[in-house]
């Protein structure tokens, strides 16, 4: 039962993260200045951070379950 709750929580946070990532990317693509070079750097930091944290979350989920 607890294993199922943990899996559900993990899926929920990953979906939530992806939605928030889409919102942030959308805002930057839609409203940033086309000539602004910093936008790419900012989005790369955010993207890699979120990928690492999702992987970390999955790693600890696997570590807990098995």
């Amino acid at each position: 039962m607890i294993a199922l709750i943990l899996i559900f929580l993990s899926i929920a946070i990953i979906v939530f993260s992806l939605i928030s990532a889409i919102i942030i990317f959308y805002h930057f693509k839609r409203f940033a200045l086309s000539a602004d070079q910093n936008v790419k750097k900012i989005l790369n930091v955010f993207k890699f951070g979120i990928i690492i944290l999702i992987l970390l979350n999955l790693f600890f989920l696997i570590l807990t379950l098995f």
Partner: peptide, 10 residues
């Protein structure tokens, strides 16, 4: 650790 990584992501 799983709970804290959850908070970290938020």
């Amino acid at each position: 650790l799983f709970s804290l990584s959850f908070l970290l992501l938020i």
